[in-house]
Amino acid sequence: MTQNDTTTESEQVPAGGVIATDPATESIWPLWEIFVRSSRGLSHVHAGSLHAPDGTMALRNARDLYTRRNEGTSIWVVPSEGITASDPDSKGGFFESAQGKNYRHATYYTQSEGVKHL
């Protein structure tokens, strides 16, 4: 609250001049994930997240927060709740099973004799 607010809020200010706000019930803006593409031909890369009341304002906030130093030529904003993420606790089952399976890489195989143009 700015000190000037009291001029327009006088009818709501209780005795003592303190406006009670309960952080638990105060509504906050939804969270958005920001993706910035630095130049043509590259993909959008996750840059961070921010709060905004809607997608249009999220784009503007992203412009102010993530492209102030000529970082971007394009911005995507995605509601954070629209992202389904892998569970960090189950990374064993998710990602580590690929380890040791060298035959999934091309370098595992030796070049057969007589095969040209490889």
């Binding site: 910035v36 630095s38 130049s39 890369v45 996750h46 840059a47 993530y66 492209t67 130093r69 000529n70 970082e71 971007g72």
Partner: peptide
């Protein structure tokens, strides 16, 4: 960095 910066 994910987001390249420059002076313009």
């Amino acid at each position: 960095s994910a987001t390249r910066i420059s002076m313009g």
